[in-house]
Design a protein around this nucleic acid. Structure first.
Length: 560
RNA sequence: UGGGGGAUCGUCUAGUGGUAGGACACAAGAUUCUGGAUCUUGCUACCGAGGUUCGAAUCCUUGUCCCCCAGCCA
């Protein structure tokens, strides 16, 4: 976990826990849980919840369970279970031996339901889905009681056991809690506890044809695990009375309490499971781990660090306000972490050939370059230099704008870690006018310092030696959507067509040739890059742009 | 429309009757062999209207706006 000295976070949930501990509400215990449904990959919003639940457990010396909330077999799978586990571990959290599944409680839940029927608090209902909707009433009108409500306990028990035995067709019956069809809270209008659904479950197979609903299963699962603080998102606030109702009917003594906080929204992306699934299945991105995805797997492949995501979670806080967090804050956390840890290197994304006319042909030399200018302890590597180099195309302008500090006619510039060079002439393609190469003169006296005559050279550009450079593919990622809040049903219309730009003809300095898959670098003056986990090969590196460096110049240039 | 929540700098978030603070963003300067990093400085907020009080973001009244709920999803 993070080793920062920042004070422990405080928020309204921790306030509640402090107060509970003060009054001894749960005997001073703190037990949380993270309860994903394994029907998709977890994303940055889940990561916020993971940090909250596991973070609280660590902070209070309590426990946090991982529980797969797998009560609806449709869409659930082992693939998702495994991805969720690996993502949480990667984030830096540990559930130790406390991995649970709601599906492990199916038998216990069935018994709970049985008891409720025996107590006359649940009944088998034969309404069709359409009828059920009609009987439910509306916001302003109370519901109507189901005919099944007056069934005898014996008949309910018989019907329920036959539901389990598979005697009825899917949807023919439901088990409902007998609460209040006139409740102003629609959740309390005799909610469904069980439905018949012949779908194979990825864990229980065809053992069950009835499956418990979330509202029935969740609070009781919490109680079974001895959870004290059941933290969930705001849309479950209406469900809290029902959560409490089930638990109060069936659980004596100390009961878990549900606390709701606002789910995370991040600008220029979507975080609803439905939309994420659509992006993947309809091929708008290349899978759940596409580096543009806000999934943990996507961010990991992009090159984001666990620490950056944890710091982000701490920075956004926990509250009940609707929010749309600036994607720039996440990027800032990523830069902040990478600035400390990433080794520097040079790579040219859009090469422009430079010939140093006064540098002897066939000669080469090596420079010792710091891996981190502020951290000598991170060491250095040897970077070869020779007569023919590549520089970034945008680091030369024939007609430079005001304040331009790079190479231009009549100008000198420092080659990073190497010599000062002066522009002499250029060669253009006669037909297209495209600049083919630059010819420059290198000042051999400037290898280890500024020009002796006091000339000021304030521009510094990066370069690679053509002879020694490693060809590389670089994938530039940008925000997935073109508008800050793509929340509407037309969100696909706002996909950013330039969210991925693949650059094939890039050149990286020699040391980058063997970049380990997943390794992160700062390409000086450009940004942070990560050797792609899947596609990067020794000698044939593929880099993902994690996040660009802050670019003050582009802002200045854009103003004019 | 019934019920449940929420409104504080551009964004996120502190504050719980006593100087409205932090982070991101933004702006200016210093420094720099990364137009990066670092440092310094600045910037902007209590949804409206009444009231209580010596004093209100905080308490009261009232209004406005936003979000969630009518899946056999979670």
């Amino acid at each position: 976990m993070t080793e920062t000295n920042t004070p422990p976070p405080t928020d309204f949930i921790r306030d509640i826990i402090d107060e509970d501990n003060r009054t001894g509400r749960h005997d001073g215990r703190v037990a949380t849980r993270f309860p994903p449904e394994p029907n998709g990959y977890i994303h940055i919003g889940h990561a916020k919840s993971v940090c909250l639940n596991f973070g609280i457990a660590v902070q209070y010396g309590g426990t946090c369970n991982l529980r797969m909330d797998d009560t609806d077999p449709e869409g659930e799978s082992l693939e998702f279970v495994e991805s969720i586990m690996s993502d949480i571990r990667w984030l830096g959290f540990d559930w130790e031996d406390r991995l649970f599944y709601a599906s492990d409680y199916f038998e216990a839940l069935y018994d709970f339901a049985w008891r409720l029927i025996e107590d006359g608090k649940a009944y088998v209902c034969n309404l069709t889905p359409d009828e059920m909707r009609e009987y439910r009433g509306s916001f302003t009108e109370p519901g109507t009681e189901s005919p099944g409500r007056s069934r005898s306990i014996e008949e309910n028990l018989d019907l329920f056991s036959r539901m389990r035995a598979g005697e009825f067709a899917d949807g023919a019956y439901t088990l409902r809690a007998k609460i209040d069809m006139a409740s102003p809270n629609i959740v309390m209008r005799d909610p469904i506890m069980y439905r018949i659904k012949r779908a194979p479950h990825y864990r229980t197979g065809d053992e069950w044809v009835i499956y418990p609903m979330y509202d029935f299963a969740h609070g009781l699962s919490d109680a079974l695990e001895g959870i004290t603080h059941s933290i969930c998102t705001l849309e479950f606030e209406n469900n809290r009375p029902l959560y409490d109702w089930f638990v109060e009917q069936l659980i004596p003594g100390d009961r878990p309490q549900q606390i709701e906080f606002a789910r995370l929204n991040v600008s220029y992306t979507v975080l609803s499971k439905r939309r994420l699934i659509e992006l993947v299945t309809r091929g708008f991105v290349n899978g759940w781990d596409d580096p543009r995805m806000p999934t943990v797997a996507g961010m990991r492949r992009r090159g984001y660090t666990p620490a950056a995501i944890r710091n982000f979670a701490a920075a956004i806080g926990v509250a009940k306000n609707d929010n749309l967090v600036d994607a720039g804050l996440l990027e800032s956390c990523v830069r902040d972490d990478l600035n400390e840890t990433a080794h520097r290197a040079m790579a040219v994304l859009r090469p422009l050939k430079v010939v140093l006319d006064n540098y002897p042909e066939g000669r080469s030399e090596e420079f010792d370059c710091a891996n981190h200018p502020q951290k000598p302890e991170l060491g250095s590597r040897r970077v070869p230099f020779s007569r023919i180099l590549y520089i970034e195309r945008e680091d030369f302008e024939e007609i430079p704008p005001k304040k331009y500090k790079r190479l231009a006619p009549g100008k000198e510039v420092r080659l990073r870690n190497a010599y000062v060079i002066r522009f002499d002439r250029l060669v253009k393609d006669e037909k297209t006018g495209e600049i083919l190469e630059l010819h420059c003169t290198c000042d051999p006296e400037t290898r280890n310092g500024p020009p002796a005559d006091g000339r000021k050279v304030d521009g510094v550009i990066h370069w690679v030696s053509a002879e020694h450079a490693v060809p590389a593919e670089v994938r530039l990622y940008d925000r997935l959507f073109g508008i800050p809040d793509p929340a509407g049903e037309d969100y696909l219309d706002h996909l950013n067509p330039d969210s991925l730009q693949v650059l094939k003809g890039c050149f990286a300095e020699r040391s980058l040739g063997e970049a380990a898959a997943g390794s992160r670098w700062q390409f000086e003056r450009i940004g942070y890059f990560c050797a792609d986990e899947k596609d990067s090969l020794p000698g044939k590196p593929v880099f993902n742009r994690i996040v660009p460096l802050r670019d003050t110049w582009s802002k200045i240039a854009a103003r004019k």
